[in-house]
Design a protein around this nucleic acid. Structure first.
Length: 281
DNA sequence: ATGGCAGAAGCATTCTGA
């Protein structure tokens, strides 16, 4: 099963590129971020013509997420739900459409567009950290239910200095601060693994390049788009690829798609009883 | 320190992104 995530920076502007990409890679699930469109204006037809179901959670101008899936998603939910931690008031996050979840093939698909945060001293940064803390609480709830999870999207965080083209210049700043990395680790909490780092431990692999200063041509990028999966799925993970060539398109998104191949033929349904088995390969 | 580039809204210019 091919699962992909892509911040497309406007689904309507990028529509033909997205359809081309689907025809090239034939994903089973494609999570989109920054769709930048109200649900009643979303271009459903081109995706449905290719046999996909489309679940959207958008708003005018900003943000917006969508799940495009060959298998019809079940239990679709929009926005945070089930967060019992009163410190993280869910209602404060309702006006920004940044999270959509669905059950597909026995896996809880969680598609996120994490706030950018602007700069460390801004109100938006506080919002980003609070949002991530609410996401951590949300994942706690999923874990209690024993869900197998695929958490993917634009996290707007480089998890380590290996994920920045110039760490000396950017370390400690937005997307590369200790506070953000701690908040991200709190979300992952040892229960989720970074699919890309299973296969590649070196620097020099990016999912985002600034539109400015010829960043793509100079390959000055960041790795801020991620696919995290439950540890219990690690033996099913066959590959993780960032399709950097997509960034070379005419009028591209500033992000490239990230995708994983999950082989679900031998899914271990007994993982709860045998939580150490998957380490023994 | 700032701007640079892009998209949406809407028609000049501002807001936002990362």
């Amino acid at each position: 099963m091919l699962i992909a995530t892509w911040n497309v920076n406007s689904v309507r502007t990028r529509l033909s590129q997205i359809i081309d990409w689907i025809n090239q890679f034939n994903p089973d699930i494609l999570s989109l971020q920054e769709t930048k469109v109200r649900d009643d204006s979303f271009p459903f037809e081109p995706f449905e013509k290719l046999g996909y179901s489309v679940e959207v959670y958008g708003q005018k101008s900003y943000n917006g997420v969508a799940i495009i899936s060959k298998i019809k998603p079940e239990n679709v939910k929009k926005g945070f739900y089930g967060c019992k931690d009163s410190d993280h008031n869910i209602e404060t996050f309702l006006d920004q459409k940044r999270l959509i979840t669905a059950d597909i093939n026995g896996i809880k698909i969680i598609n996120v567009y994490v706030p950018n945060g602007s700069s460390l001293d801004s109100d938006k940064f506080e919002y980003k950290i609070n949002w991530l803390n609410c996401l951590a609480t949300f994942l706690d709830e999923q874990e209690k239910k024993g869900e197998l999870i695929c958490l993917m999207g634009d996290f707007n965080i480089a998890p380590s200095n290996l994920d920045i083209h110039d760490p000396k210049k950017y370390e400690g700043g937005i997307m590369a601060s200790k506070i953000e990395r701690k908040a991200l680790n709190n979300v992952l909490e040892g229960r989720l693994i970074d699919s890309f780092r299973v296969f590649e431990q070196n620097t020099g692999h990016w999912s985002w390049w600034d539109y400015r200063n010829n960043a793509y041509e100079l390959n000055k990028g960041w790795r801020i788009d991620h696919i995290y999966i439950s540890k219990e799925l690690s033996s099913n993970l066959k590959s993780c690829v960032m399709d950097s060539l997509t960034r070379a398109n005419l009028r591209p998104s500033d992000h490239a798609p990230v995708m994983i191949n999950l082989d679900l033929n031998n899914i271990n349904v007994d993982f709860l009883e045998n939580e150490n088995d998957f380490f023994e390969i």
